[in-house]
Design a protein around this nucleic acid. Structure first.
Lengths: 234, 234
DNA sequence: GCAAAAGTGTTAACTATACACCCATGC
DNA sequence: GCATGGGTGTATAGTTAACACTTTTGC
């Protein structure tokens, strides 16, 4: 029954590109490795897939270990498996991106990791092929977010329109017209206006909104059955 | 230096979802396994990642082994790694979809595999989690094709507008207006009209077109820097 | 001549984009 | 009262979508 006994085995890892949005800018969470190899260098949080879990579960476990958070939106976004990518053995790593609401993440978690948020454009030097992983994650995030409203995963329960706009601007590295954006968003019925205003960031104050979870789920789950106003990408 | 020596190793495989378009319908290429386990059952073409190659290279090697084709468009589209997904050992498999022009694939290749094209909706019973892999591949194909014109990879050098329309209709399982579609496509400058007509499929005959490779590459490579007419997905 | 598929022209509905201007507030 | 960001109204350009109609051919 050992059909596969002559096949080469290897180590399978996952690495997490953790995106967070603090209301102003898009950032990623990196750790200073407290262990060998490459101790004390900045890196993505990662770990090995264990016998009792699939890679998705491994990624969730590792995310939880660092942030304490569960049920976080995660998606695999690239395979990094060049034969020589790590010096210390054959390791293939599956990059996963996670979208977290930074307000949920307080630095509760262990001293085991020195973790820090870095604005997307101010990444420090990273080990291995982690810079490429981040690049790939950004690309996949843009792609997915162009078709599905996943960026709401980065926002807290209550958020304002100017915040959403800043978020989309951060992800697509572009400028948007807040006025037109908000109208479009409203007409999608994805968000519901609350009575309360955020007075922290402006004199007039911006109304808070919350996500319409039913419509959100519908849109997230929907299987594209037509090409979306079929771009063909002008 | 054996930092990872206590980590659990496993077998890493790739499986190929090979899409082909014969001018009328979208199909996938399956094999009847000539080897154990699950001999004589229908399955995706797959194999193990070897020490000298990354998973992408493994997928290309395996595709070539079946079809003889090289430089084929391939993309990973899902990780399948539940601990118990195969009875005979821990195998994590990376699903890859490939887009081939069926005219390039003649049944030249070995008797080792009994391969057959199946229309997308007429899949036979498949082993393991291969049906889920195909489902995922369809989903990713739709997603990518909504933003990038990758479906041209499925067409021969010369193709007609009615063929492209049939292709998009197959991928999105929908009906399109050939007249409007062709105008849109023309204005994208992605295709170039040839003098010649295909007289096989209609009395009047449909003009052949070829791909404008420069524009194609540009569009394929382009990093989304704006949300495409920002759907937010009505 | 007629059927069938390819392709053109035209129009109405809808969307995107730009931007003038009003609103609410803190200082 | 005025600067500041939030938000509404509106006009214009552009795109989509529907479909009548013309073209080209095989039989």
């Amino acid at each position: 029954m050992d059909f596969y006994k002559n096949e080469p085995s290897l180590l399978l890892a996952v690495d997490c590109i953790i995106f967070g949005f603090n209301g102003e800018s898009l950032e990623i969470l990196l750790i200073k490795r407290g262990f060998e190899p490459e101790r004390n260098k900045w890196s993505l949080m990662g770990g090995f897939v264990q016998p009792d879990e699939n890679p998705q579960q491994a990624a969730s476990r590792i995310l939880k270990k660092l942030t304490g958070l569960e049920d976080v939106y995660m998606e695999d976004c690239g395979i990094f498996g060049d034969p020589d990518r790590e010096k210390y053995g054959r390791v293939v790593s599956i990059a996963h991106f996670a979208l977290i609401d930074t307000h949920q993440y307080q630095h509760i978690i262990s001293e085991e990791f020195e973790a820090r948020w870095f604005p997307l454009k101010e990444e420090p030097q990273l080990i291995f092929d982690h810079p490429q992983m981040i690049e790939k994650a950004k690309q996949k995030l843009r792609m997915k977010a162009a078709l599905y409203p996943i960026l709401f995963e980065l926002l807290p329960e209550k958020f304002t329109i100017p915040q959403i706009v800043a978020l989309y601007e951060g992800v697509y590295d572009t400028e948007l017209d807040t006025r037109n954006f908000s109208r479009k968003l409203l007409s999608s019925e994805l968000i519901i206006k609350l009575k309360e205003k955020d007075k922290e960031n402006s004199k007039k104050g911006a109304f808070y909104f919350r996500l319409n979870k039913d419509i959100y789920k519908e849109k997230i789950m929907s299987f594209l059955s037509y090409l979306p106003s079929w771009s063909l990408n002008g």
